[in-house]
Design a protein around this nucleic acid. Structure first.
Length: 259
DNA sequence: CGCATTTCCTGGTAGC
DNA sequence: TGCTACCAGGAAATGC
């Protein structure tokens, strides 16, 4: 739907200081060459007179939504694009954690997480060997390190907790101390959790919707996230909630013992 | 540079 | 009912 469209105009819904929505003035007249993805970032290479000068980078954050041919005046509208063929593209984002900005083509140095992002979790590059090498580089708690996107792309708070539970790894374990015998299982668990969530169209707690407006159903498969004090599905011990790296963290003290 | 902590932001909710 | 306080988290910024 977006590939090959020309941007006729691009504007902010209202004045927005700060770095969230930058470079829109460069967007007019450019062609959306295609839509790609790295981790949780959308990367849209742009063409001006056939030349690639910029990338459009979009991150939905927690509450960002892209809609084509959207309703007249949605709430929390941030960015509006007019496209050829009478199409419009709206970016709405209640909590403004998202990003919608232009960078020089291929130069993502203004986005350090994207720049230093690890391999795609479901791609061929995410091998147990590569994962072991990455984990060996850090003493940070393995969960926090997963959230950094450096050892592997795309793992957020819910999926980190779920994958660590499946692999029996305590989230506070320093990354480099994760036992070798558990690295392969953790890698497999990350892939399985993400693949299952994709198959179930994501995790819906309140406002998340798929592109068609439907809710996901992976929340029905969560083993630990949001289940503090409830019995572990594997051993029956109560799930414990802690805070790690400033993020709510859930694990089973029996199945995921600290070293 | 690596790592820990703080900040951004607002809808939802708990408590009074 | 209406108010205040607090919580949620992805990535960047800040502080060491």
């Amino acid at each position: 739907m977006l590939t090959g469209r020309i941007v006729l105009d691009a504007r902010l819904a209202e004045a927005e200081p700060g770095p969230r929505y930058r470079g829109l003035d460069l967007l007019t007249g450019q062609v959306l060459e295609r839509v790609t993805r790295r981790g949780k970032f959308l990367v849209v290479p742009l063409l001006r007179n056939g030349e690639r000068l910029n990338d459009l980078i979009i991150h939905l954050g927690m509450t960002g939504v892209l809609s084509l041919v959207p309703p007249p005046r949605p709430q929390h509208l941030r960015v509006l694009l007019g496209l050829d063929g009478g199409l419009g593209l709206h970016f709405t984002d209640a909590r403004r954690f998202g990003r919608f900005l232009l960078t020089p083509a291929g130069d993502h140095s203004s986005l350090p997480t994207l720049q230093a992002m690890g391999p795609e979790p479901l791609g061929e590059g995410f091998t147990a060997e590569a994962f072991a090498t990455a984990l060996a580089r850090s003493v940070t708690a393995v969960k926090t390190y997963l959230l950094s996107q450096r050892p592997v792309a795309g793992v957020g708070n819910i999926y980190a907790d779920e994958a660590l539970w499946r692999a029996g790894v305590n989230p506070a374990t320093p990354a480099r101390d994760v036992p070798a015998a558990q690295i392969g299982p953790l890698r497999d668990a990350i892939r399985a959790v993400l693949a299952e969530s994709i198959a179930r169209e994501g995790t819906t707690f309140s406002d998340y919707r798929t592109v068609t407006g439907a809710t996901g159903s992976f929340q029905d498969s969560l083993a630990v996230y949001g289940r503090a004090e409830q019995p572990c599905g594997r051993c029956g011990h109560p799930i414990r909630r802690t805070v790690l790296g400033g993020r709510g963290t859930h694990h089973c003290p029996h199945c995921q013992p600290s070293l």
